[in-house]
Nucleic acid binder design. Structure first.
Lengths: 332, 332
DNA sequence: CTGAAAGCGCTAACAT
DNA sequence: ATGTTAGCGCTTTCAG
């Protein structure tokens, strides 16, 4: 591999001039710059990014740490982040924490060690180790969930969205909606549960703990939770499920039991997904502006990186949209 | 941020000893090692990975460059890669090339500059710039698709799988199956088309170009292709679609036209997906061992990284499995 | 078993 | 406008 000094020798200049010419920094005689570029091309020179990063004490790389790569919400977020990052000259490295605290910690550590320019993360809640990043003065933006450490965040009105979804279930004529939400330590899960409870109380029903299940946000757990709810002495007649991944599990469980949403039971899920309108029946959802969430987080991060002066954390909260298809409807 | 010399001072030793103690390398007096660890902990010391990488001239990070993050095939592959990587002490950074050559090139460049230990990639075919990696002596394993540059690869028997799928369509009583495949420059797409053609010829039909569509492997393109096929003078009565993402588009188009698979038309897709059994009707698929593909690629890469001696490229080809659900069946 | 010293490849101050 | 020099933080010879 050709190094900068090889290019310098070939072009008959110093290494510093090569660096300046290739990075368009400072002032270089146009003719010289051209000679340098030619020499670099002939040698197939590629700057060693590791050396550059060490010297510059910074990187043009972001880490995007998401909770679950199979959740379409996060893949859409990733698109939003990437588009803006590219526009601003950053590369983004995607890390899949898989709702697992150890993996998340590992990626956070890699991000710190590799001195990334910034981190966007949907934190697992059990005390995500964000404070280390702040100590290392690496800007962090959280999405979807918040943490104790005060950093920028982009959220949606989960509680309001969940409430609207559950109200819609009541309005459609269902009487005993259940709620399948995420882990107790995830505030997104908690807010969606609260929204559900808001609607239950508004409908002047008594919230029953037997109609609530906490899971790890994954397919299998939702499948089990649905079966468990169906096995209750007084089973629910409708379901509010707190994300798209779990909707798959719930749908499967209902199918297993021969129960058809939109006919035998009601079903609404948080998050839209590419397949949501194609399942049987088409799924009613609370859609999040996932792409915008990613794009917004990316913008906040860029600003944070550019300003050297510390500044109060900024919080952006976006709205959800109820999309009524068929799974929530009640015949007759 | 504490540096190694700070730890050294606090522990009353040299930087070299700190390095040795923390990396468990060479021989360090146990008592000293303990003192070093204590000092490091007190200072919250984290080694600067960039500096370490520069000195060591290597990294413990892989780049996994996939074609489309929304395709469940690739997310499953990613799981397989990550599990093995973690087991062997590597971290994997996921890059979404989005079926876009520019993005792919960019990530390849970042991977080279950041001196990753290895690359696993599902290459976009229009001359992926793999040769640069080889020049930089960074090991590469391709998955799903191959390139000209001779490197290790993990593939599936695409042609056989496609043939089996199409034969199944004929066996179910359909007479004019169409094929929606990927770009002409992608050999996976080409092989799936060939498998389709094999079956057509076996059935003693004449392959009609009017029944074949090339797309970019994405939802929208498949949607359009399906509508276009339906608009032919002699439209097909069945569809073989070359990946899961496109199945979504085809399904949508058929639904738009009021055509129900498993009743009005036949439909088989390459790739299984979490939602495949939940759509209406459940989708018949040619399942790829996606997780195993990832895991196998990861194993090949590890071996390649460990052996210093060059060695002929290795190619592993795994088998597919036809899973008959309902979308391919013909009533009566 | 430990320390001193060199140096990975690059960029940024400082000279000229 | 260009070259010289120093040094980013770490690991790894090489001495002792």
């Amino acid at each position: 591999m050709a190094k900068i000094i090889d290019v310098a020798n070939r072009a008959g200049v110093s290494a510093a001039t090569v660096s300046r010419a290739l990075n368009n920094v400072g002032t270089v005689d146009p003719a010289l710059a051209e000679r340098v570029r030619a020499a670099a091309a002939e040698l197939g020179y590629r700057p060693n990014g590791v050396a550059r990063n060490l010297r510059r004490q910074r990187t043009d790389v972001w880490a995007l740490i998401i909770s679950d790569i199979e959740n379409p919400f996060f893949t859409a977020v990733a698109r939003g982040v990437e588009d803006i990052a590219r526009e601003r000259g950053f590369s983004v490295l995607l890390c899949n924490a898989d709702e697992d605290k150890h993996k998340e910690d590992r990626y956070l550590q890699v991000a710190e060690q590799e001195q990334v320019a910034g981190v966007i993360i949907s934190p697992n809640m059990r005390g995500s180790d964000i404070s280390r990043m702040v100590q290392a003065s690496i800007p962090v933006v959280t999405i979807d969930r918040t943490v104790r450490t005060p950093v920028d965040s982009v959220m949606v009105h989960s509680r309001a969205g969940a409430r609207e979804a559950t109200e819609h279930l009541f309005a459609s004529g269902w009487r005993r909606p259940a709620c399948i939400t995420g882990p107790e330590y995830a505030d997104t899960a908690e807010q969606r549960l609260q929204g559900y409870l808001d609607a239950v109380k508004d409908a002047r029903r008594r919230p029953a703990t037997s109609l609530i299940r906490h899971t790890n946000f994954q397919v299998e757990a939702a499948h089990a939770a649905t079966l468990s709810l169906l096995g209750e002495r007084r089973p629910p007649d409708a379901f509010f499920v707190a994300n798209a991944t779990m909707a798959l599990g719930a749908l499967q469980a209902l199918t297993d039991r021969g129960l058809k949403p939109g006919r035998d039971v009601g079903l609404v899920a948080f998050d839209d997904a590419p397949w949501a309108r194609l399942v049987d029946p088409p799924l009613t959802v609370v859609a999040q502006p996932a792409y915008d969430i990613g794009a917004t987080a990316a913008r906040l991060l860029t600003e944070r990186i550019q300003r050297s002066a510390p500044q109060r954390p900024r919080h952006v909260t976006l709205s959800t949209e109820l999309i009524v298809r068929q799974s929530s409807l009640r015949p007759g």
